[in-house]
Design a protein around this nucleic acid. Structure first.
Lengths: 336, 336
DNA sequence: ACCATCCGTGTAATCGATTGCCAAGGCGTG
DNA sequence: CACGCCTTGGCAATCGATTACACGGATGGT
């Protein structure tokens, strides 16, 4: 087991630990000959430093924590990849945690990240109310950026998508396709995204004269989508369209339609949200709202980096524009 | 910004830092009244400890690192969730990194994890040869468990699936369905899993008298599956079956079939590997090999915990049995 | 009544790297 | 030639928590 410390390197190189530190980190110049000797000694011994000790002294870890409700949801994995990529450019590492959509677990993760002295946190909070306390506490300790969803009453930056615009795009598209009644399937979670999507659905269906048949709340999963659609089928005449708050729900809906012999889009139109990679592969391919995940991730890291600086800027809120991806589930014939 | 240390708590409670430490960690008993006072003081100040300082002193971080080739691949996210869950039971945290299927990036991640003093590492290595050096080095520093894929010549534990058995199940199923020729689509990556799957395919097709039409190597992605299938279609008469080394490739193959007007399973049978959640949702649903991901994850954590103990056991290799999930892509009519 | 325990608490060393401060030597300038 | 600056390296303090060791007082056994 390697147990090489800076002292070992210093001894072998015949210099002090201070010099080794400066030679390896470049914090201050050392003479070329000493640099050579030290580098050689470090290599020979396989010295790799002790990040913990370094972090303690510098009170920086060059690490940021990220907390997402689920790492099985492709939308979040895409977001995570984006954030990791952006951080890497800045020489920082990502410490990823899953809150499993549980506010208590989320609070625990936050405490753990703060205790581990991460430099900052990127979080997609679980719940609009039950996440608040932990989030406020964390925000008080270090720079924090909310992504996608956001909890009101927390003094932090936020970057996400313009949910109202998204629902406007969806409803306009459906109305233009002749839809006169629609159901909405979403999650019970009380958070900004979920609420704004329901609100947007309500508002824009009203504006376009589309009748709202049902609003079913469950969770963001394939299983819930399947179950919700089964209920709609059992309940009687179907609406013209089923609007889903994310793609997983929509995939479940499609599955339930296939099982129940309901033809999509002939009998009912279906839309999703997020444009995960599998949305294009379903039967039929899914019309959905594409989120600019990479832009969201980049912006989040940019905001975090700014917050790591000396200046204390007021919280920023940035809502990026989504776009509608039209596929066969709303009537376009399938094609290559 | 919170900057509360154990000294602040000690001062407020009117005791020494040693007592505070003992009261809060329970390392040694303190009198009830002192415990009360200290807990109160810590709460009042919002003390949350400094994990870095603690880790330095105890030379334990209660954190394990995990390195996977991709976090966008649902197979790995399932594995990650399993590992995280198992670790949580043991009171440890997961530090997740993606190597992006790049051995250099992988080596960098390993260095970084070792420098951060994680207690152990779970890794699914990228490359059978180019990952070896970094893996051997890391194994020399701390306990390490390989999962899924495995690099020979590294003195570490491994847990994964029995790839030979998996291919036997697939080929037997196909042969029993009347298939007499097959193509294999996989990745160029040189690693145990990939190689064992090719070997298994070759061996079992030979055993069952199935002609091998083509072995196409690319990467584990939907895009490559699509492209490979396009090539097969362009190349002339199709084999009876297309066997894919993972589900992403298979999903791409299905997509290309749909685009090219090739009917599955009427014109060609298709099989995948992993049984990711989306395998059941494709058109048609995919016959695939189910990996016991949770068992793999649990076993990996178990091995790691064992390695963290005092004893130096010889490296263990544990190949768990997969099972075949038969769906419509190999001829079963779609149902419920 | 005396000595051996034992319990709870404090003092201070320690983990490993970084860095403020100081000193020695080299160099240039007046 | 003398003086001061600038460069390079070492000493030792420091980050915050843990813990070996010591110590005082209470308890119990004989």
């Amino acid at each position: 087991m390697g147990r090489v410390t800076i002292r070992d390197v210093a001894e072998r190189a015949g210099v002090s630990t201070a010099t080794v530190s400066r030679a390896l980190s470049g914090a201050r110049p050392v003479s070329p000959s000493v640099l050579e000797t030290v580098t050689r000694a470090a290599d020979d011994l396989g010295y790799s430093g002790n990040g913990i000790a370094s972090a303690l002294r510098r009170s920086r870890t060059d690490t940021v924590g990220m907390v997402v409700p689920s790492i099985a949801n492709p939308f979040f994995t895409a977001l995570v990849e984006g954030v990791e990529h952006a951080l890497q450019q800045a020489g920082r590492q990502l410490f990823l945690c899953s809150s499993r959509s549980d506010p208590d677990l989320e609070a625990q993760r936050l405490r753990s990240l703060v205790a581990r002295q991460v430099d900052g946190i990127v979080i997609s909070p679980v719940h609009g109310i039950r996440s608040r306390e932990a989030l406020a506490w964390a925000t008080d300790q270090l720079p924090l950026v909310q992504v996608d969803r956001y909890v009101a009453g927390v003094d932090s930056d936020w970057v996400g998508v313009d949910d109202d615009l998204a629902l406007r795009l969806v409803v306009d598209h459906l109305a233009d396709s002749g839809v006169t009644s629609a159901a909405f399937i979403s999650s019970t979670l009380t958070n900004s995204s979920t609420e704004l999507r329901v609100a947007g659905f309500t508002e824009h269906t009203a504006r376009r004269g589309v009748a709202v048949r049902d609003v079913l709340l469950g969770e963001y999963s394939i299983a819930w989508g399947r179950e919700a659609m089964q209920r709609l089928v059992a309940a009687g005449p179907l609406p013209d369209a089923v609007v889903c708050a994310d793609d997983l729900i929509a995939l479940g809906v499609l599955q339930a339609c296939a099982a129940a012999g309901v033809a999509v889009p002939a009998d009912v139109l279906v839309t999703g949200f997020d444009d995960i990679p599998y949305a294009a592969l379903s039967d039929p391919p899914l019309t959905t709202v594409r989120q600019p995940q990479d832009d969201i991730a980049e912006e989040a890291v940019r905001l975090l980096s700014a917050a790591l600086g000396p200046h204390r800027a007021p919280p920023a809120r940035s809502a990026l524009a989504p776009s509608l991806v039209v596929r066969a589930s709303t009537g376009v014939s399938a094609s290559g």
